[in-house]
């Protein structure tokens, strides 16, 4: 996973020089580009996912990325195809089987769990069928930033732009349907349709993230930024923007760390994001303990210990 051909690059602490050094390698440029796209898309979609309490669905969709990628390798087609195909298909299955009534949370999680188990089993089968050159499922499960091609970056950018565009169009009714489904339905918001569309967006976003952090660490980019931002502010617009910033920051910092240190990228991204989350939590607890929020009548922390 570590760069074998560069003999231990050293940090000069001159950011400009460091970036120039890193970006001398085309694969690092691609990694930073892909990281930027994926972290922004995932933070935005993840913000809604956390608010909708659909993290379990998100996790299942990311698990579906694993059989997708392994089947693509088995068949010799592009892994991107496998990622997007399987994640979006799993999203449609969850949407079709679950959420019949309004309080269908338990049923939905049962359906989701079923899909997840089946996806993992398929991935295992595909991996064992492919006895050849596959070095092992580690890269699929924990991610790799080496060898992201310019073609992959383009695909990530196109899908990411589509996801963000759809999210921008449906954002407000989706928020309404999330916070207050009955009133939204009464106002003519197509709550069920939005829920399906959102699952498809979630599938696309997890497919993107899986290609950077691997299947198992998708939440580093999807849940942690949103959860951190929602700790820091309860204003929807601000907290969404903050989530995007935190996601972007942890991803790029993780890439820089992974360039200089011989440990996996997924570890760095997750650790940095997690540190931010813990700091935000502590900050908020401190604020509440000191009673500042009460005297101002709202939760006042708006910037704080981001990654």
């Amino acid at each position: 996973m570590f760069l074998a051909d560069t003999s231990s690059p050293a940090v000069s602490w001159n950011l400009l020089a460091d970036f120039q050094q890193m970006w001398a390698y085309p694969f690092m440029v691609n990694a930073f580009r892909a990281g930027a796209i994926v972290s922004v898309v995932c933070a935005a979609v993840g913000w809604f996912m956390v608010l909708r309490r659909q993290t379990f669905a998100g996790h299942t969709l990311s698990v579906a990325a694993f059989p997708g990628a392994s089947l693509a390798i088995l068949l010799g087609v592009s892994t991107s195809l496998g990622y997007f195909g399987f994640c979006v298909a799993a999203a449609l299955v969850i949407a079709a089987l679950g959420r019949k009534g309004r309080d269908a949370g338990a049923e939905e999680s049962a359906v989701t769990g079923t899909v997840q188990a089946f996806a993992l089993a398929c991935g295992y089968l595909f991996i064992s069928l492919y006895k050849g050159l596959l070095e092992g499922p580690t890269a699929l499960l924990f991610g790799s930033f080496l060898g992201i091609t310019t073609g992959q970056v383009t695909l990530l950018a196109i899908v990411g732009a589509l996801v963000l565009a759809v999210l921008a169009v449906i954002g407000r009714p989706l928020l309404f349907a999330t916070v207050d489904p009955e009133v939204a339905a009464g106002r003519g918001v197509p709550v069920r349709l939005l829920s399906t569309v959102f699952l498809v967006l979630l599938g696309a976003a997890t497919a993107e993230a899986s290609q950077i952090t691997g299947t198992l660490l998708v939440f580093a980019l999807m849940v942690i930024p949103a959860a951190t931002a929602q700790q820091l502010t309860s204003r929807p617009g601000r907290s969404l923007a903050l989530a995007v910033l935190i996601g972007f920051g942890s991803c790029w910092l993780g890439l820089i760390a992974a360039y200089y240190q011989p440990y996996p990228l997924g570890f760095f991204v997750t650790t940095i994001a997690f540190t931010g989350y813990v700091l935000a939590h502590l900050g908020r607890a401190l604020h509440e303990a000191l009673g500042w929020s009460r005297s101002r009548g709202r939760t006042p922390l708006s910037i704080g210990g981001t990654a």
Partner: peptide, 26 residues
């Protein structure tokens, strides 16, 4: 309806959704 203690959306935002929450686009 009661909102779970973990819902991090302000009261005014919920009220505001009643005004234009059904509008598409940002």
């Amino acid at each position: 309806r009661s909102f779970d203690a973990s819902v991090r959306i302000r009261g005014v935002d919920v009220v505001r959704l009643g005004l234009d929450g059904d509008r598409w686009g940002i």
